[in-house]
Design a protein around this nucleic acid. Sequence first.
RNA 1: GUGGCUGUAGCUCAGCAGGUAGAGCAUCGCGUUGUGGUCGCGAGGGCCGCGGGUUCAAGUCCCGUCAGCCACCCCA
Length: 450
Amino acid sequence: MARVRPLSGFPELTPRDRVVEAHVLSTLREVFALHGYGEIETRAVEPIDRLAGDSEASKEIYVLQRLNAEGDAEAKLGLHFDLTVPFARYVEENQGALQFPFRRWQIQKVWRGERPQEGRFREFYQADIDIVARETLPEHLESEVAIVMARALGRLPIPSVTMHVNNRALVEGFYRGVGIDDVAGALRSVDKLDKIGPDGVRAELAEQGVSETAADAALELARISSPDASFAAAVEDLWETTTKVEDPSDAQEQLARGIASLTALVESVNAAVPGTAVADLRIARGLDYYTGSVYETFMDGHEGFGSICSGGRYDSLVAGGGFPGVGMSIGVSRLVALLLSAGLVSATRGVPSAVLVAVTDEETRAASQGIADRLRDRGIPCEVAPSAAKFGKQIQHADKRGIPFVWFPAPDGDGQVKDIRTGDQVDADADTWEPPAADRWPGVSAADPA
RNA sequence: GUGGCUGUAGCUCAGCAGGUAGAGCAUCGCGUUGUGGUCGCGAGGGCCGCGGGUUCAAGUCCCGUCAGCCACCCCA
């Protein structure tokens, strides 16, 4: 038999690390549900022609095909590479059964055939929330998703986060006003500002045929940011002083709408979750279907991790038009991998058991199992020692697994339970004894801020 | 998908210029015959990632491959 080997980009966690991932997942579910979002789960596959919207993305798609398919049969199914495409199909398919605006959360694995690196995998969890409307999507919902995500992230055992927000209409209006026609292309270049610097962006824009003055204006715009509404005045000043196209009235109108929308977003998010949102006019997002608010979220002090939660507003979820919506997505696997490798979080233990019931000798194993079952009846996770080794060994067995309590049965009664961290040992009754709430199940602790 | 760096014990890493594989920690045993963690003594543990090549001789040099990481690309 061939030796087993890891598969590049398909990581598997130890039980202890999975405790961290599971904790993150359940925390997100709870916060999403608290805000009225319902869960859906979609199938793992979609027709390839639906997935492969553009040829760029299609290179990443894993296809699904029967091993013994006819030799010339073309693969028709592919694994989804995000949750937005399947969600769009789901909404279209079930529109008669859904109430709008429709809020949903969805946490599933997705697959991308990319070259793996730390925190970048080929199979990973994504956690999405979206709200879609049938006809028009009220603007306040663009604030709502940001607030829900900010609260969800706030509940995780991670450092505080800052959500950088921008508005596509604002940027597009501005760009068109200064004579940049390929708005999407320009955005992609400006998005690289951190990586390639202002001169790099200028060079890329020049290649796209953007004039020097327009490129400078775009870079000036990207420099503006504020944790409140004061960005608006800065944008308006820049607009006044910059060289514009012959008739910028349409562009100016679009710009004004974007400014108003971004102002409302920053103010309402910060009212709900103070200190979270920053209007940052450099945030672009590579995806070109966004039309309104766009979001990128960074962990304070760990900006190098990149965005851990992002999204935006789109005018139309489905190809034929209709169903405007807004959504955000957390790359859970990426986030968890980065947290673990940076030592920012750890599980309190890797096994569920809060108690190890010791075995005095094999003749009385049944008595130990009886104690364990009575604890389980009351929802206390426990296990029975694998062998009747010396008690010192049994304590070590518990200690290595992080099990905080060892129960020593006695011939006459239930015996005693010992907290092996403190050494405290007390008489106990298996029908009434309770571990502290914090010890009952494995938990996740944030690293002490150094 | 393109380019680069790395791969030696469970972990972190030494290994000289090609000359029979090492340390610390961890593990196991005993001292300590039924309540651990200290200390002392001892032991086990290696397809030197995998395959091929050069050489009298390869952990060491060359090629390929796989895996991890980094930069592109793209994004979570």
